[in-house]
Structure formats: structure tokens, C-alpha cells
Design a protein around this nucleic acid. Structure first.
Lengths: 208, 208, 208, 208
DNA sequence: CATGAATGAGCGTTCATTCAT
DNA sequence: TATGAATGAACGCTCATTCAT
């Protein structure tokens, strides 16, 4: 019996979703540190005290908001590294990077708000609720450097220093994404942005 | 009389400096939103109530911290645009960009902490004390786009879209600077980083 | 039918017992006011909401915890008074007091935790959940005074003031019991403590 | 200049007094755990946040309320021990104990409310704000035992066990004091109570 | 002017109590 | 009937801001 999920479980899932959504919406509107638990609960249509059934504090909510995107990103990075480690020539490299760009773009699109949230709040000291964001940012930068190192080690890429190339790409990507989100790049086809990015990657940032 | 600055004025200037320095130090350590006026005053060696004699609130302090760097940057950008508008060939372009890179680097070095503060806190919604930071960031991005547009208009640069190139450069620069500051680029000579950046600019981000 | 207790009733009794035990254990560990209904229910292995099926609030639980001991004590006191009212000489008095001491000791031993709980929390204003404890303490003191008055009235005891003697005995008893429970009297045979107490009673506290 | 204490200092002292007094009054009325910082501040005629300038939390306030009495008691106990250690005969013992009883009585009278507070809340687990009370109670009981041990060691007192005598005296004293405070001993001259107590002490609780 | 005490709104968190499941 | 999710009033504590000294 009870093949369908019970009402309790349904409510639970719905509440979680509502809290995450409300939190994300408010964080984007007014900034992580300016939003109170009170508001999040109200915006999610529940009582303040109920928030704490679902998240131990604001930091846990932030982690929860980021989690789907972070998990997906980790998977994509892993896959890209696997591909790079098997890559034999420039075409394989192209394929690996292109593939990564594609799935990252898709993941970003599917988690648009979370992505924007990440871009907006991931810098600075990892104090309190910002910790999960900074941790993820660190992870991303380290992964970018690692991927570049692999490509260089396999002789597929020639760069002055893998760290420079990797961070430059990460930085460009971040600001371009924000540009698309905040309207500064309105009218530019996303594919063109992507192409520019991939060009940067493949050209190893040009400096040799 | 009183050609030399009076004792009063000297004190005033010293207090201002102490408050700005203390605020900056604490903002870097623990994040803008986590620092209280109380702490800033204590760190600056003055009484809490005295803070309000010099700054109307935290936002004003932030603006004060950024002001020297922002003024310098505006000057540099202005000069670069002037140079670009008189530039006749690729060499002039090189000179203009190289010059900008140089003075920006110098300004950043002279305002290292303010620069880092800017890089760490300039994103996200412009709420509360963060407003001056976000405003400056907007200004920088708009200026970067404008400079690129000028270069393109004069036929000195060929890019798919000036906005993409400009933002990519801004993003790379930001993350590379942070990388130098947070140790991720330890051991890389700054000149090499700069060269990579200038290469990016001159190559118009490679994508055509 | 249903001469034997039904399953329902069995469960009910078991739940009550579990809640009382859990509450008592926690009250002793951390103090009456520091224990939440939540914890009591969890410790008793039942759901929080279920607590309210058995007790209207914390005060009712406290009353429930004390009830067996209180009822027994009332009976013993009653019996002692009956004995005293029939007592004709010092031997009868000895017998009555000795008997009371014995049954009180037995009751305390049989309700060791409840007794300790009473000793620890029965003072102070009768606010909230503490009310039943304070009420019982008042009852005990009044009874002690009353018993002494009876003995005096019957010419069996000579004291400066029955109230002084009675309260001194009650106070000594309480602290000595606590001393036995908290280890301060480790190594002293309980009978020796009891003898001292009875000596106090019979000597009418010595001051005449 | 400024021989008289400044207005600031005057205010400070007055606030401290008001907070201690307000706290004590409320603790007596409704019990330590039932009183909120909010109420204490309101009762003291100050703002809630101001409470924390003077006391780090409720526990610190309790310690502050107890402190004068505790310090006095420690001094008296010390003096009594010194006297006992020099005592040569029963008369010296009488003097030492009588003296202690007298100064304790005076101290209690001078700190009537604090004394009552101590008597009402010093039992039970030392959780949170109750810690200083329990610590003081432990100190008192240990000191009582120690004093008795000294008297016994010097052959001035003959008791079955110093711990029993000491705790019995402490317990009697406590309950008799409460009895005087809560009206149960109305009409009994305090001197008579004291005499009873001293009789108890000198007779070594009668049990040999 | 400088000081730091006072103010009180507001935040994060808890918990007795109710109520849908 | 049992469960534990939801509610919301408090509570402890903080801190931007004001103001007496």
C-alpha cells in the first residue's frame, strides 16, 4: 500500500522547495547578509520556527541552495578530466572542452538563480553563511587549474602557466555570465559568448 | 596666519585615516557585513560615537575607503580614452593599452587592500554599505566596454562584440588579481600575468 | 468481560510510567526548568504530541512524579499522629517517632529519585511547574509542626517552641538526605544518620 | 580636581545597584528561571541592551547579587577557623561558635533578600544561572564540615561523625531561616531560634 | 570636541502547544 | 490513537544610532 508518497512526505518536499526558492529569491534581491530568517519563512509561506526543522541555520540553507548545481558541476568536471586523460590529440581536447562548456552552460541554465547567487556572493572571507559559497568557488578554481594541468601534461595545450590560463578563463566566464544576467550583454547571442570562451581556452590565453 | 595646517585639522585628517584603515583591515578579515561600527572605532583607537563625526554610516566609510583608488582609476581611464581617440595605428593602441595596464597595476599596488576589498565585495545587489562598491564595479565595466568600443570604432581592434571582449578582460583581471592576493598564483611573476592580460586585450579575445 | 486489564489500558499505564521516569531522570540531571517537553517525550520513546494525552503540562507531570511518594508520606504522617494521640508515655513517643522514621526512610528508598527531585527543587516561589513541589514541602513542614505540637500537648515532649524543633528536624533531615545522595556522606552508615536524627527529635533539639 | 566621583561613575554605581536590586526582587517573586532579562531591565528602569553593559548574562548577575554576602561569609568562616585552631577549652569553643552565629546572623540580616534568594535557589543541578548559587552552597557545606572537624580534632567536641553534625546544623539553619522569612515562625524571637541552633552545635547533635 | 553609556528595534533561535495526517 | 510538522510568542543577545557628560 501507499505506493504514492504520503501527504507528509509531499509536504516536506514542498516546504523544502519553498524555503530554498524564497531564500534564493531574497538573497538575489537584497544580498545574503541583508536577508533575515524571518523574511525567508514569511516569503515561503511558513512560520519562522518551522525554518529550523528544515535547515539548522542560514548557512545550511545556502548549502542546500547550491547543492544541486554543485553536484552537477563536480560530475561535469570529473567527466572532463576523464576525457582529458584519454585525449590523444587536439580534436579530443576540443571535444572535451566543448563538452564541458556545453554541460556547464546547461547546468547554469537549469539553475539560473543559484548560478547568479553563486556569482554574486562567492567572494570574500568565508564568514558565516557565505562559507559554502566560498568553498564552492575554491573548488571550481582548483578544478579549473587541475584540468589545465592535465591538458598541458598530455601535451595538448601550451600555456605560459596553467594557473594563469585557468583563472583567466574562470574570471572571464564569471563576468560574462553576470553580464548576460544583468543585461549588460543583452542582444549578444549566448553562442557567441560561448565561442569566445572556448577560443580563449583553446588558444591557451594566447600568451606563450 | 595658519598657513600650515592647524593642530585641529591635523587631528581630523589622522582620525579619518585611522578609521579608514581600521575599517578596511576588518572588512578584509571578516567581510563587510560582519564588521560593526564598534569594532572599527575600537580598532582605530577612538570612541564609537566619534565615528559618526567623520562618516554618516558604514556606507560612507566604504565610499571613503574606495575614493582614492576610484579617482585614480577614473583618471587613468580618461587618459586611455584620450590616447585611444588620437591613436592612429596598432602601435598607438599598444601604447595606450600598455600604459593603462601599467598605471592600473601601479594604482592597485598602491591601494592593495582597497583593491582586494573591491574585488571581494563588489558583486551582488547594491544594498546598504555595499552600494559604493557595486557602483564602482559598474563604472569599471562600462568604462571597459566604452574603451573597447572606441578602439573598434577607430579600426584598431577587431572583435566579435566589444562587450564580450571587455567583460572577459575585466573578469580575467579580477580573478587573476585575486589569485595573486590569495596565494593561488604564488611563484608566478606578476609581469607574466600582466603580459597574458595584455595579450588577451590585443588579441581581442581571439574569437572572430 | 475485560476483567484483566485490556491491551489499551496496559499501554496507557506503560506510557505514563515511561513519561514519569524520563521526566524524573532529566529533571535530576539538568534541573526542572531546563528540561523541555520535547526531550521528555523523546527520552520516553514517544511522540511529543503524545505527552499532552497524558499530562496537561509540565506541572501535571511533576505532580504525577511526586504523587506516589506524597500519598505514602501523608499516610505515614497520619499514622504517626494517630499513634501520638494515643501515646501515654515516653516509650510510646519513642515508638511513634521511630516508626515514622522507619517508614519515611523506606518510602524515600523506594522513591529515591523522586525524593531527590523533591529535595532539589522544592524551595522558592511556587511558580509554574514548581508549584506541586512547593505545595508538598509546605505540607511536610506543616505536618512536622503539627506532630510536634501534639507531642507537646500530650506532655511527651518539652521544647522551647514546637515550630523551631519541627523545622530544625525537617531541615536537618533534608540536608542529610541530600548529603547521602550527593556523596558528601559516603561511608557513613545510614543507621547512624537515622540515629542522630531521632536523637534530635527526642531531645527536642536540646534547647529549653 | 574632581575629588567627588564624576557623574558617570555615580550613574554606573547606581545602575549596577538598580539592576542587582531589580533582579533580586524578581528572582524572589517568581523564581530565578522564570525571570527574563527584559523584565529585570524594565524593573531597573533601563533599556534591555544596557543590561549587558553591566553583566555578561543572568549568571553574572546572580554572582553579583551573591558576592557581598559570599565574601562576608568566607571571612567569618575563616575567622571562626582561626579561633577554633587556637581554642583551648569548651569556653573558647563556645566563644568561637557564638561569634560565628552572631556575625552570620548579622550578615544575613544585612543581606536579607540575597540570603533568602540563596536559600531558595541553591539546590539542584548547577545549570546555567544557578551555578553560582550551587557553588556557594557547596562551599558552605564543606566549610561547615571542616569547622566541625577542627573542633573534634582539638578534642573540644565529641560527635559520632563530623559530617553528620555539620550538615544537620546547616540544614536546620537553612530551614529555620526560611521559616522566619516566610512567616512560619512569626512570633518566635530570633534569639530563641539562635539559641536552639547554638545548643545543637554545642551538644554535637546529641548522638554519641 | 571626544567619550562611551543608553536606547530599543531587530535577529537568530527555542519551545509549549496545536493540529493535520 | 500516535505521530511529528507547524505555529508563533518569547527569549537572549547585538548593534546602529543618539546623547549626556
Amino acid at each position: 500500500m501507499n505506493k504514492a508518497p504520503g501527504k507528509r512526505e509531499q509536504n516536506r518536499v514542498e516546504r523544502l522547495r519553498a524555503l530554498r526558492e524564497a531564500g534564493l529569491r531574497l538573497f538575489l534581491e537584497r544580498g545574503l547578509s541583508q536577508v533575515t530568517i524571518d523574511e525567508i519563512a514569511r516569503e515561503a509561506g511558513t512560520a519562522k520556527g518551522n525554518f529550523y526543522r528544515y535547515f539548522s541555520d542560514k548557512e545550511a540553507l545556502v548549502a542546500g541552495i547550491l547543492e544541486p548545481m554543485a553536484t552537477a558541476m563536480r560530475g561535469h568536471i570529473e567527466a572532463c578530466r576523464d576525457a582529458l586523460e584519454k585525449a590523444l590529440d587536439r580534436d579530443d581536447l576540443n571535444a572535451a572542452y566543448g563538452s564541458l562548456a556545453l554541460v556547464v552552460a546547461i547546468t547554469a541554465t537549469q539553475n539560473l538563480d543559484a548560478c547568479r547567487f553563486y556569482l554574486q556572493e562567492s567572494r570574500g572571507p568565508a564568514t558565516g553563511a557565505r562559507a559554502p559559497l566560498v568553498a564552492l568557488a575554491d573548488e571550481v578554481q582548483d578544478a579549473a587549474i587541475e584540468l589545465t594541468r592535465v591538458a598541458v601534461k598530455r601535451g595538448l595545450l601550451e600555456v605560459s602557466d596553467p594557473r594563469i590560463s585557468a583563472l583567466a578563463v574562470v574570471g572571464s566566464t564569471e563576468v560574462l555570465m553576470l553580464g548576460m544576467l544583468d543585461g549588460r550583454l543583452d542582444g549578444v547571442p549566448p553562442t557567441q559568448v560561448a565561442q569566445t570562451m572556448i577560443g580563449m581556452v583553446l588558444d591557451g590565453i594566447r600568451a606563450r
